[in-house]
């Protein structure tokens, strides 16, 4: 009985994944659905006006808005920025307590329990996508009932950041293992990807050549954020296309 079980377990092994994301700036319309979806999924605290005014608002994913030109010949570029899950992450090496480290799936994991709040990682992160609990987060009752039981609530003095919704990744993996099958592309998505109405965000396994995300990563429009820093981000940005290119004018 027991050896058979062992054998069974050996027989099935989940393929190792390399999670990544593609962000299509041509599709993104700045609707901010991802921002609120992320708040709802990950128990991100609402800090309130006073703290927000002091620069303590937390949005794991934010939509950066950049103007180009001046009125009336003006354009805007939206650029959703979330943790880039760098392979050479500048934030990881500086953490004295291994609160920030690279897990086996290439994710830049943040272990809240280990964090003592040096905030070094946030300084080191060139994408500025680490958020710190400057005050103890509070939810006016009964807003606390909205909290997702799958995600730990962070207390004061802890750094937090986008996890690619690791709770969803784990749930999907457990399910797949239970059913003895490999994960399918698009089987599950982080909260931001799931709600993005324009499908500007695409999530998947970069090591799977057939996945949407790995195909998008090979696009002509593909670029990385601050590529010259050599951080090897796993988020690919698909730059905005130009209508004029295609019209040859």
């Amino acid at each position: 009985m027991a050896p058979a079980k062992e054998q069974n377990q050996k027989a099935f092994r989940l393929k190792r994944r390399n999670w990544g994301m593609a962000v299509d700036e041509d599709r993104c319309t700045g609707c901010e659905a991802c921002v609120v979806a992320c708040h709802a999924e990950n128990n991100i605290a609402t800090v309130g006006e006073e703290q927000a005014a002091r620069g303590r608002a937390m949005h794991w994913i934010r939509i950066e808005r950049y103007y180009e030109g001046t009125f009336p010949d003006i354009k805007v570029k939206y650029q959703p920025v979330l943790c880039q899950q760098c392979d050479n992450a500048p934030c990881e090496a500086v953490c004295p307590t291994y609160a920030s480290y690279h897990n086996a799936e290439g994710l830049n994991a943040q272990i809240y329990n280990r964090c003592i709040g040096t905030r070094y990682c946030a300084n080191a992160c060139p994408y500025e996508d680490r958020y710190f609990n400057f005050v103890n987060p509070a939810w006016d009752e009964p807003l606390n009932l909205q909290l997702n039981p799958d995600v730990s609530v962070r207390s004061v003095g802890i750094m937090e950041k986008c996890t690619f919704c690791i709770q969803r990744i784990r749930a999907a993996e457990i399910n797949a293992e239970k059913e003895k099958r490999q994960l399918k592309d698009g089987e599950f998505n982080p909260a931001c990807v799931q709600s993005c109405p324009t499908e500007a965000l695409v999530f998947g396994d970069l090591d799977d050549p057939e996945s949407r995300v790995s195909r998008l990563a090979k696009s002509n429009r593909a670029a990385k954020l601050l590529p010259d820093l050599g951080t090897k981000p796993k988020v690919t940005y698909l730059r905005r296309g130009s209508w004029y290119d295609e019209q040859n004018t």
Partner: peptide, 10 residues
């Protein structure tokens, strides 16, 4: 509160 704290995109 989520709406109040969501940054207006522009």
């Amino acid at each position: 509160p989520w709406m109040q704290e969501m940054p207006d995109v522009i």
